[in-house]
Amino acid sequence: MSMQTSRSPQPAGASPRRTPTEGQHGSWRRGRWILLLLVIVCGAPIAISYFMYYVVKPAGGSTSYGTLIEPQRPIPGALTVTGDDGRAQPLASLRGRWLMLSVDGGACGEPCVKKLFFMRQVRATQGAERERIVTVWLRTDDAPVPDAVRRAYPDTRMVRADPAALAAWLPAEAATSNEDHIYMVDPNGNLMMRFPSQPDPSKIKGDVTKLLKWSSIG
Rank of each mutant, 00 (worst) to 15 (best):
T63P: 05
P76C: 13
G77M: 06
V39D: 00
E70T: 13
P71A: 07
V39E: 11
V56M: 09
I69A: 03
P76R: 11
P74K: 05
R32M: 08
Q72L: 14
M52F: 04
Y53C: 04
V39G: 09
F51Y: 15
G77V: 12
S62A: 15
R73N: 10
P76V: 12
G61H: 03
V56Q: 01
P74N: 13
I48N: 06
G66F: 00
G66E: 01
V41F: 12
I48Q: 10
S64L: 01
I40Q: 09
L36W: 12
T67R: 10
P58D: 05
G61F: 05
P71Y: 09
Y53I: 08
G66V: 05
G43A: 15
T63N: 11
V41R: 03
P71V: 01
P71F: 06
L36A: 15
L36S: 13
P74D: 13
P71W: 08
E70L: 14
I69C: 03
Y50G: 02
L38T: 12
A47C: 13
V41M: 14
S62R: 14
A44Q: 09
A47E: 02
V55M: 06
P58I: 03
I40F: 14
P45N: 11
L68A: 08
I48R: 11
A59F: 01
T63M: 04
L35W: 08
Y54T: 08
V39W: 08
L35V: 14
L38K: 04
V55Q: 13
